[in-house]
Design a protein around this nucleic acid. Structure first.
Length: 457
DNA sequence: TGAAATGTTGGGGCG
DNA sequence: ACGCCCCAACATTTC
C-alpha cells in the first residue's frame, strides 16, 4: 500500500506520481493535505477552484472504487500519522519547484519514504541546461534546448479501478463558491483543450491578442492544478499540427506550444533562482525609487484608473479570477510604468486574484513586465494603454463588457472617453469624472517619469 | 510580446 | 516644364 500525495496534480490521466504509486505497491491511498501555511494566503477564488477540483477528483476516484482522503494540518505530521495508520510503504508525489514546496519535501523525505516523481512539466528542470551545466536565463536558447530533447507522446492512462480506501479519518472538503467561468476538473480541462484545438488555435497568432475574442485556450487554471498535464496539452497540439495541412494551424499550434514552454522556463528560473520571489532577478534594477501611493494602487486594483482597457482587465480579474494575457501585459505595465509602483505589489495582487496564480509564472511575468527579470522587456518599453486598446480591442467590445458604464460610448471615444464633450457624454449617458474616472495620470507625463526613474537607478 | 522621435522619400499642388 | 514646399507614408533610431 502506497500513499499518493496530491498537491497540484489533480488528475487521474497521465499522472506519473499516481502511476508510480500504483505500480510500486498493492494499492494506493489518494491523499490531499489542507496545509494552513498555504491556505492562509488570501486567494479566495483559487481556493474555491482547488476545493471544487478536489470534489471532482473525489467523485472520479469513487467511481473507480476508491476516494479521496482529506487531512488538515502540517504535511509532515499528517503524512507520518497516515503512514502509521495505514502501514503504507511509500509516499509518491509530483515534484514541485517553489521554494516552500522544495523545503517541505526535502524535510519530509528525510523522515519518511517520500518519492518525488517528475510530472509538473514535460522535461525535468535539471534536464534543460546549458553545455556548461548552468541553467538558461534567456528564453530562446532555453526553448531550443527544450525542443532538442526527445518528447515522448506516451500518455499514461488513468487507472480503470482502484482498491477501496481503508477505514481512516478524512476531513470534509471546505465550502467553496462555484466559479461561473471556470468549472474545475479534469473533464472540463479536456473539453477546453479539444475546443481550443478544433477552433481557436487555427487563428491563434491573430486572435490570441484580441481581448474580446475567446482566442486563447483558457487552460491556465487547469494546468496550474494539474487537471491537465503539460504533456497532454502538447501531444494533442502536436497531433493537430502534424495532421493539418493549413499552415496557419501549424503556426498557431507552434506558438501555443511556445507559451507552454514559457511555463517551464519560469519553473526552471524559480527552481534555480528562488530569490526572484523576493527581489529583482537583475541586480541593476534593485534600487528603483518606486512611488508609494496606496490611492493609486487601490484605483488600479479596483479598475478605476480612467484608462478603459486597464480597467476592463482589472475588473475581469476580480470578476472571473482570470485575465486575458494581453490585458495582463497592459495592466501590469500600467502599474509599474505609469504608476511607478513596485511590481511586487502587482505580483501579490495577481496571486490573490488569479485562479491560475502560480509563483513561477506569475513572478516571471511581472519581472518581465518590469524589465527586472530574465530576458525581460526592456525598461523603456512603455505600453500606451490607448494604442493597445485601439489595436487589440478595436471595437471596444472588451471594454464595454467589463466597464459597463462605458457601454454606450461611441467607438471613436471608447479608449479615450475623457475626450468626449459634455454633449457627447450626455448622449451616451456617462459623465466622465463622476460615473467613470478621468485618467489618474497623464500618459506622456507618466512615460517621462518612469524613463527618468529607470535611467537613474 | 512598443512607442515616440527623427529621418527619408516621393507624389502632387502650385507659382 | 521646373523647382519648391508640404506632408503622408514608410524607415530608422532612440527611449
Amino acid at each position: 500500500m502506497n500513499i499518493w500525495w496530491i498537491r497540484r496534480d489533480l488528475r487521474l490521466t497521465d499522472n506519473p506520481a499516481l502511476t508510480a504509486a500504483i505500480r510500486e505497491g498493492s494499492g494506493v491511498i489518494p491523499v490531499f493535505i489542507l496545509d494552513d501555511h498555504l491556505l492562509k494566503f488570501p486567494a479566495k477564488n483559487r481556493k474555491s477552484f482547488l476545493f471544487s477540483g478536489l470534489q471532482n477528483l473525489d467523485s472520479d476516484l469513487r467511481r473507480l472504487g476508491s476516494g479521496l482522503v482529506i487531512r488538515r494540518g502540517d504535511p509532515f505530521i499528517e503524512l507520518r500519522r497516515l503512514v502509521e495508520e495505514t502501514h503504507a510503504h511509500s509516499i509518491f508525489a509530483e515534484a514541485d519547484v517553489s521554494p516552500y514546496a522544495m523545503r517541505r519535501d526535502s524535510a519530509i523525505a528525510k523522515q519518511l519514504n517520500l518519492h518525488l516523481v517528475h510530472g509538473l512539466g514535460i522535461h525535468p528542470t535539471e534536464a534543460v541546461k546549458k553545455a556548461d551545466g548552468n541553467p538558461y536565463t534567456v528564453f530562446t536558447p532555453y526553448k531550443n534546448a527544450w525542443m532538442a530533447l526527445p518528447l515522448s507522446d506516451h500518455i499514461l492512462s488513468a487507472p480503470s479501478a482502484l482498491p477501496p480506501l481503508p477505514e481512516i479519518q478524512s476531513e470534509p472538503i471546505p465550502d467553496f463558491q462555484v466559479l461561473q467561468y471556470f468549472p474545475a476538473g479534469e473533464k472540463e480541462a479536456h473539453k477546453r483543450l479539444t475546443n481550443f484545438l478544433t477552433g481557436p488555435v487555427f487563428d491563434y497568432e491573430q486572435s490570441r491578442n484580441e481581448m474580446a475574442v475567446a482566442g486563447t485556450s483558457s487552460l491556465s487554471p487547469y494546468l496550474r492544478f494539474g487537471m491537465l498535464s503539460a504533456r497532454q496539452a502538447i501531444v494533442a497540439a502536436r497531433k493537430k499540427s502534424g495532421s493539418n495541412q493549413l499552415i496557419d494551424s501549424m503556426h498557431g499550434t507552434e506558438t501555443w506550444i511556445s507559451e507552454l514552454i514559457w511555463r517551464e522556463f519560469y519553473q526552471s528560473i524559480l527552481y534555480h533562482f528562488p530569490h526572484v520571489l523576493s527581489t529583482a532577478f537583475n541586480p541593476s534594477f534593485r534600487d528603483i525609487q518606486w512611488r508609494d501611493s496606496s490611492q493609486d494602487l487601490q484605483a488600479w486594483k479596483a479598475g478605476m484608473t480612467g484608462y478603459p482597457v486597464v480597467d476592463a482587465g482589472m475588473r475581469q480579474l476580480t470578476a472571473t479570477g482570470w485575465m486575458h494575457n494581453r490585458s495582463r501585459m497592459i495592466t501590469a505595465s500600467f502599474l509599474v510604468k505609469h504608476l511607478l509602483i513596485n511590481w511586487q505589489e502587482g505580483e501579490r495582487w495577481f496571486m490573490e486574484m488569479l485562479l491560475d496564480g502560480d509563483p513561477a509564472a506569475n513572478n516571471g511575468g511581472w519581472q518581465w513586465t518590469a524589465g527586472t527579470g530574465t530576458d525581460a522587456a526592456p525598461y523603456f518599453r512603455v505600453f500606451n494603454p490607448i494604442l493597445q486598446g485601439k489595436k487589440f480591442d478595436p471595437q471596444g467590445k472588451y471594454v464595454r463588457k467589463w466597464v459597463p458604464e462605458l457601454a454606450n460610448v461611441p467607438t471613436k471615444f471608447i479608449h479615450t472617453p475623457w475626450e468626449m464633450t459634455d454633449s457627447d457624454q450626455q448622449a451616451c449617458g456617462v459623465t466622465i469624472g463622476k460615473d467613470y474616472p478621468n485618467p489618474i495620470v497623464d500618459h506622456n507625463f507618466a512615460r517621462q517619469r518612469v524613463l527618468a526613474a529607470y535611467a537613474k537607478k
